[in-house]
Nucleic acid binder design. Structure first.
Length: 233
DNA sequence: GCGACAG
DNA sequence: ATCTTGTCGC
């Protein structure tokens, strides 16, 4: 496990973070189809926090896209870099995620984030931000619709409905990954189209509502946090 | 002006 | 995100 420091130039407050989003969002690429579904590697990333002790733990779990077996895992622990502010989640999660990704020995391939990409008030959510910083293709799968509206998709796995911004733009999709179960909210991050993001999500979420990549990363970052707590005590 | 609001 | 046991169901 690698111990990280928050980047020295990381925004210190809300105004600085907003300025960074304004500067970086022009670099998001949305006209590339992205990697084919079921080939190569897919990496799930997730983060867990202990704000009491000011500890953050991130995990990156690399899967073989064909069989969804784990190829490699990495974690990183550090101090919380930013408070949780809706719309600025990336500043809280990304330093630890970058550290976990950088300690992988192999290529991550497609990165699946727990949150949004372009489905964001300023079209620059966590997944897009991570994509721009790393150059990797990314997508976001969130468990809640955030500030967007949608009509209920059909009841079957694979059914979807547009996730709409206030101006009517389709910024993502409410996608049913299991029959009769609450949909997940998918959006493109970087170098992946929305259609491709949904196809990857369906491939990764065959057995459960949440993609296998995210579930694996979630379990691993919680374990890393527990270990860091024990070490701190 | 106040509240809601990914994790 | 996090605080948290048992329990209903495939």
């Amino acid at each position: 496990m690698r111990i990280i420091e928050t980047p020295a130039d990381w925004p210190a407050d809300e105004a600085a973070a907003l300025a960074v989003q304004d500067r970086l969002r022009a670099r998001v690429i949305l006209d590339e189809p992205g990697p084919p579904v079921g080939e190569g590697r897919v990496t799930g990333v997730d983060v867990a926090y202990d704000d009491e002790r000011d500890i953050v733990a991130a995990a990156a779990v690399v899967l073989d896209a064909a069989g969804l077996d784990v190829v490699e895992e990495a974690t990183a622990v550090g101090r919380v870099a930013f408070p949780y502010i809706p719309g600025l989640l990336a500043f809280r999660e990304i330093p630890a995620v970058l550290a976990a990704l950088s300690s992988l020995s192999g290529e991550p391939g497609l990165v699946v984030c727990d949150g949004y990409g372009v489905a964001h008030p300023r079209r620059f959510g966590l997944a897009s931000h991570l994509g721009v910083l790393t150059g990797l293709p990314t997508l976001g799968v969130a468990k809640n619709p955030f500030v967007f509206s949608y009509d209920a998709p059909g009841p079957r796995r694979g059914d979807s409905a547009p996730l709409l911004a206030e101006d009517g733009e389709e910024v993502g999709r409410a996608l049913r990954t299991r029959d009769g179960v609450k949909p997940v909210f998918v959006s493109a991050g970087h170098r992946v189209t929305l259609d491709a993001a949904c196809a990857h999500t369906l491939h990764l979420a065959r057995r459960f509502r949440i993609p296998e990549s995210t579930r694996r990363a979630d379990t691993l970052c919680r374990a890393a946090l527990a270990a860091a707590r024990a070490a701190a005590a």
